[in-house]
């Protein structure tokens, strides 16, 4: 018994999907990124200038964006 999609599955046997960050390190990565974002936001709070908005705000936002995704996965809500 074979169907075309089952053959597709068999053909892809060599490439199982692995996420770039494994389940074991999601919490660490998420926590570090969120902490980094908190620090950067704190420094931005001390000196709110337009230059700092791009120098600190963009990395802080990126760290928060990815950190939030990993942290919510780490606590068991797999998004």
């Amino acid at each position: 018994m074979s169907s075309p999609l089952l053959d597709v599955w068999e053909a892809a046997a060599a490439s199982p999907y692995r996420p770039s960050i494994g389940k074991g390190s999601q919490f660490t990565v998420g926590f570090v990124l969120l902490l980094l974002s908190l620090f950067l936001a704190g420094i931005f709070g001390l000196n709110r200038s337009f230059a700092n908005l791009s120098v600190l705000g963009i990395p802080a936002s990126l760290a928060f964006g990815f950190g939030a995704v990993y942290m919510i996965c780490a606590v068991g809500v797999y998004v």
Binding site: A41, F44, L53, G57, A60, S61, L62, F64, G65, A68
Partner: peptide, 15 residues
């Protein structure tokens, strides 16, 4: 992550 990043950046910009 991009949606959350944009949201967070909007907060920085508003601040």
């Amino acid at each position: 992550p991009v949606v959350i990043t944009l949201g967070m950046f909007a907060v920085f910009a508003v601040v």
